[in-house]
């Protein structure tokens, strides 16, 4: 089966600034992919290209559609939440449900109502009367009531408090995700999504620096906390990054012999957050 998302040579320039430099990746059906990068790395530019929100150079296909010209058709099968609090302030919650039901062929009104029924949000509320967290809840309920093959979330929890962020992802995992769905999430708060991802894409300064499934990460990357007296010996095995942690130094290895590493201490798989820091800050030491 063809990839759900297919990106090759994706380039985006703002004047003389190159925001994306020949980005390439693919997303397969049923995956939850995190597009992770520091601010200004190009995450939003990738999203805009995928969703048909902005022009780009290169080859992009999402569910077989060229996004910029086929956005309206694409949005029958894909949905997205870009940024928080973008629902118009004058809209009433029941109007929002009726509107989406009116224009979207795969929207299930009852499901949206049921999702909101659990909250304190009333159908007669206007968006402007809701807190930021509640606005996000409404948007998520509308989006989750759409039977979409692909859901794209661009910094969906930016500026929300911890409780709202947690309930956002809980709802996503418990009430939405199943094997017919594919989710692409961009975030710079990788700790928050790391447990639900099946794949990660690291992006830095407009380039993809890591494209891997979580299983492959476990096979490929190792971290070992090494005592000072063994540091020289361990460094001989070419760690790509090191980080001081109290008396020990954590060394990060790629494609190393786990058996050999075990001589220096307990070998573990680095967290995505640690890997992100390690990958993006380069050589270290």
């Amino acid at each position: 089966m063809a990839s759900l998302i297919e990106v090759r040579d994706l380039t985006k320039k703002y004047g003389s600034v190159v925001a994306l430099d020949r980005v390439a990746f693919a997303v397969e059906p049923g995956r939850i992919v995190g597009l992770v990068g520091p601010n200004g790395a190009g995450k939003t530019s990738v999203m805009r290209a995928l969703l048909g929100l902005a022009p780009y150079e290169g080859h992009v296909r999402v569910l077989g559609h060229e996004p910029l010209h086929g956005r309206a058709t694409l949005m029958r099968e894909a949905s997205f939440i870009a940024d928080v609090a973008v629902l118009p302030s004058w809209l009433r919650v029941d109007q929002a449900i009726e509107f989406v039901a009116g224009v979207h062929p795969h929207f299930r009104r009852e499901r949206a109502r049921a999702l909101l029924g659990k909250s304190q949000i009333k159908l007669t509320h206007r968006i402007r009367e809701l807190s930021k967290g509640m606005k996000t809840q409404v948007h998520l309920a509308l989006t989750m009531a759409i039977d979409a093959k692909l859901l794209v979330l661009d910094e969906p929890t930016l500026g929300l408090d911890l409780l709202a962020r947690r309930s956002f992802y809980d709802a996503l995992v418990n009430d939405y995700m199943d094997d017919t769905r594919t989710i692409l999430i961009t975030t710079h708060q990788v700790e928050e999504v790391e447990n639900l991802l099946t794949d990660v894409l690291f992006i830095d300064r407009g380039r993809i620096v890591l494209d891997s499934s979580m299983e492959a990460i476990a096979r490929r990357f190792f971290a070992v906390a090494v005592n000072a007296d063994q540091l020289q010996a361990a460094r001989a095995l070419h760690p790509f990054h090191e980080r001081r942690a109290l008396a020990k130094t954590v060394l990060y290895f790629e494609n190393a012999d786990a058996g050999a590493l075990a001589a220096f201490g307990a070998v573990h798989t680095p967290s995505v957050a640690d890997l992100f820091v390690a990958k993006l800050s380069g050589g270290g030491a």
Partner: peptide, 20 residues
């Protein structure tokens, strides 16, 4: 207005073309 309050990001997530 839709650009100013960024609600265009919601409207564009609907299967409604710009022409419509």
């Amino acid at each position: 207005a839709e650009r100013k309050d960024r609600s265009i990001l919601f409207w564009k997530s609907m299967p409604v073309s710009d022409a419509m």
